[in-house]
């Protein structure tokens, strides 16, 4: 998925680098609201989690496996601004330490996988949360759809960039169709893993899921009504 050097021309590369820098600068401010003075340690540990979970292979069908990209999941777990920072840091480490994704293309990769994927994933999640019934199922459905669509959204953004500043003259429509179709499939995997992970966290520590605030279980130590009334066993 990482765009290497030499795919896009200099103007497009410089443009996406500027977009990435602006986006990260805004996210740095936003994350202070989400995490206040805990920004650095919490975002750092969450980035380490994203980095580790990307190494985890989930079997898809016989013989093939995929891994999580994690933009939408991270946004639902820790909030969109922190998620942008985490994805940016992970991409930076991958480019510098593993040569995964080009150095000059870092801005492009941050734009696609940190900004577009998180914005699409979280935007869809937040929009659906308003429409869907509040509750565990609603949160999981919204997050699953957000994760599902965040992957083709990033892929289509790449096709647009390739159309604007790609080095090859390819029929854009068919490239978009092919990329869209492949990434819809990848998105299905992303959605399945996102829902599974989120469901597990919701079951154990719902308070850690930022996107599910307001879903907290009622306090269990409420004074009980007098024993004469029938107990409400839920």
């Amino acid at each position: 998925m990482h765009v290497p050097d030499g795919y896009l021309d200099a103007a497009t590369t410089a443009g996406t680098a500027a977009v990435a820098a602006a986006g990260v600068a805004i996210a740095l401010r936003g994350a202070r609201r989400e995490l206040d003075e805990r920004t650095a340690p919490m975002a750092g540990l969450t980035a380490a989690f994203v980095f580790a979970v990307q190494m985890m292979n989930f079997p898809v069908a016989y013989g093939t496996s995929g891994h999580l990209i994690g933009g939408a999941l991270t946004a639902v777990l820790v909030g969109p601004w922190t998620a942008v920072l985490c994805m940016t840091v992970v991409l930076l480490v991958q480019a510098l330490v593993f040569a995964d994704g080009g150095l000059t293309a870092l801005g492009t990769n941050v734009t696609l996988m940190a900004l577009v994927a998180v914005a699409a994933g979280y935007g869809i999640f937040a929009g659906l949360r308003r429409v869907l019934p509040a509750g565990r199922t609603g949160v999981l459905t919204a997050a699953g759809l957000g994760a599902f669509l965040s992957v083709p959204a990033a892929a289509l953004a790449f096709v647009l960039l390739f159309g604007a500043g790609g080095v090859a003259d390819v029929p854009l429509g068919s490239v978009a169709a092919a990329m869209g179709a492949v990434h819809l499939l990848i998105g299905l995997g992303e959605a399945a893993i996102t829902v599974a992970v989120l469901g597990a966290v919701l079951a154990v520590r719902p308070d850690l899921v930022r996107g599910a605030r307001g879903l907290q279980v009622a306090p269990e130590l409420a004074p009980r009504p007098s024993a004469a009334q029938p107990l409400d066993l839920r």
């Binding site: 969450t46 989930f58 597990a200 966290v201």
Partner: peptide, 28 residues
Amino acid sequence: GRHLGALKVLGPAAGSLFIRSYERGERV
């Protein structure tokens, strides 16, 4: 883990990895 059913095991594993990472962050 050979097929999709493994998600039932791997999902919670990744979930508890997140909880452990987050709690470690708070401790740090």
